[in-house]
Design a protein around this nucleic acid. Structure first.
Lengths: 342, 342
DNA sequence: CTGTTAGCGCATTCAC
DNA sequence: GTGAATGCGCTAACAG
């Protein structure tokens, strides 16, 4: 009856120590079948004595479920994503799931590689913020794989997406500038292959149209999404005649680059030009001047994204989803980088 | 010979389609045994045709290895950790490992829970930035579990730790202030249960001693590590007579809180008080004034932390590690928040 | 070189 | 209520 001390114990060790069969141990662990309380207690004691933790690998092989979800983000060092991931992790943890984290580095091939790995590891589902030229949607369809698109959403996806209402919040930011009397408004629109950027531009257009304001071609700069791209765009805008009196920026890296350029040229904000950007975080309040920005519901995006995935993972064939697309409201935090037009 | 279309295929399906046995398929996949190139090609074709990916769960059960490492951080939304995680993820990916991410929320019980989960999932090793009152070290020893402590290091750990040279970099920051002629230097030392904070304080003490400068009790504030704690400490310091002319801060949240308090009281930086803090990031350069800060080698910490873990996971019983403790140099980025004393 | 076989640790019928 | 037996998909002897 003596069990040799070992690094890892199996159900058989527990069963032997408790003087029962392995199926009784299994029944105690899973509560699947009634067990007399006396024996159940002996089993629990044996498990504790051996520091026994059921082998989830074996369990997964048997049940066909891993209780793991994959999360793929384009860049975990972009302050936006850790908050989303935190939301996922917390919701997942409560539901008994663990999170496999992958970083695609904004590269579609890396993304696809991660998708294959996650598939091979038999994760129960995937949350994905896809990158430009992503093939993930096709892969998902081909494999009939439970997946939720987060933040960045392929136009084709018929269900399983969660993102900020980017059209609405883009319009909100633009309307803020318009309400301050600005008419010559520029936009750094980012990478138009990505739904958030595309949608924010659409919102911008909508707001400008409503106000009967023209959008000059040279005031619309798109393409890159990095700090340097924002800096370049800033330089470009400052060279124009007439200059814009306000600039809207569709992500935080571009925002930073733009500020760099304005600072270098000693352009006063908001006296000479007002700026509003996307993605708020604690530091924005401490810039000089403090920054007006759109704050997305990052944490909630992660949490509800996981819940949506749970619905997809759990549904029967043919069953409908309670919600196919979740859109979250954003909030405009008005600070000192935006002011009345000249 | 016809294989019914299914969501997931097994090695048997591949074997049947290729007209070989499962062990041949296995041999092709693992390259463990030579296979004639003709048959190997047929196997590869069958795998591609079925979009077959070997079931890593089954493989893990068989081999006893999962090729997964766990990473536990106290707060993934703290900008320091995503960079470390990115370093881990990249190094891990290259070595064929995936990363299970857990967030302990600075709570020792949650940390222990995650550790149990990771253990049950049979991850091959764990990278841990532990929180105060962590029991992880004992758990590791008890289970003889491959583990590397990252950033936050238990004093007892005889090997398997990686962190910044916090004593040295604490001294470096303090010496910078001393070199500028400051004598009344205060420090927000953070939570002294955590090794980075404890070590930075030690470095501070060392530098002050070298310079024959006294450390007043009321200039040394420790305990919390949140933004509000930094704000409170700032208020406290401003009430003193004489006031310190320079303040050193041991993490980025406290730093932010301190800046808040100074801003509210309209204390001019660096004219009235110089400030230097820990953890640099892109935004620091855009504060008003730009912030002098110690930049840790975050990415490298992750990368080399994983490599250290690999050594631990791979070593034979009794074998020594090439390096037991890795200490990384930090860099002081001097900007405009520090200036000459009065 | 190739195929047959025996488990890895567990959950789950199925008899008792 | 309980235990013995089967197999999840794969790898690693082993025998041919």
């Amino acid at each position: 009856m003596a069990i040799k001390p070992r690094a890892k114990y199996t159900m058989r060790d527990v069963a032997r120590l408790a003087g029962v069969s392995t199926s009784t141990v299994s029944a105690v662990i899973n509560g699947s079948v009634p067990v007399s309380s006396a024996r159940a207690e002996k089993v629990r004691a044996a498990m504790a004595a051996l520091d026994y933790h059921p082998d989830e690998v074996a369990r997964s092989l048997k049940t066909g479920r891993t209780n793991v979800v994959g999360v793929i983000v384009p860049d975990i060092t972009n302050a936006f994503y850790p908050e989303v991931v935190r939301g996922v992790e917390e919701a997942a943890g409560k539901a008994g799931y663990s999170v496999l984290l992958c970083d695609s580095s904004e590269d579609a091939r890396t993304e696809e590689k991660h998708l294959n790995t996650l598939f091979a590891r038999r994760v129960d589902g995937v949350l994905l913020a896809c990158c430009a030229h992503s093939t993930a949607y096709d892969t998902m369809v081909r494999r009939r794989f439970p997946m939720v698109f987060v933040d960045r959403v392929p136009a084709a996806a018929p269900e399983g997406t969660i993102a900020t209402d980017n059209v609405g919040s883009g319009a909100m930011a633009a309307r803020h500038l318009i309400a301050l009397g600005h008419e010559r408004i520029a936009m750094l629109a980012g990478n138009l292959e990505l739904s958030p950027h595309r949608d924010r531009l659409e919102g911008f257009r909508k707001a400008m149209q409503e106000a009967n304001l023209p959008i000059r071609d040279e005031y619309l700069i798109s393409g890159g999404v990095q700090v340097q791209d924002g800096d370049d765009a800033g330089v470009q805008l400052l060279a124009l005649h007439p200059r814009p009196t306000a600039i809207m920026v569709s992500n935080n890296q571009l925002f930073l680059g733009l500020l760099q350029a304005l600072e270098r040229r000693q352009v006063r904000i908001p006296e000479e030009v007002s700026v509003v950007g996307f993605d708020d975080h604690v530091w924005n309040a401490h810039f000089h001047p403090s920054l007006t920005a759109v704050a997305q519901a990052t944490f909630e995006m992660g949490r509800r994204g996981f819940e949506l995935l749970q619905h997809i993972m759990g549904r029967k064939p043919g069953e409908e989803l309670p919600e196919k697309h979740v859109r979250l409201e954003a909030e405009l935090r008005v600070r000192n980088s935006t002011g009345r037009a000249g």
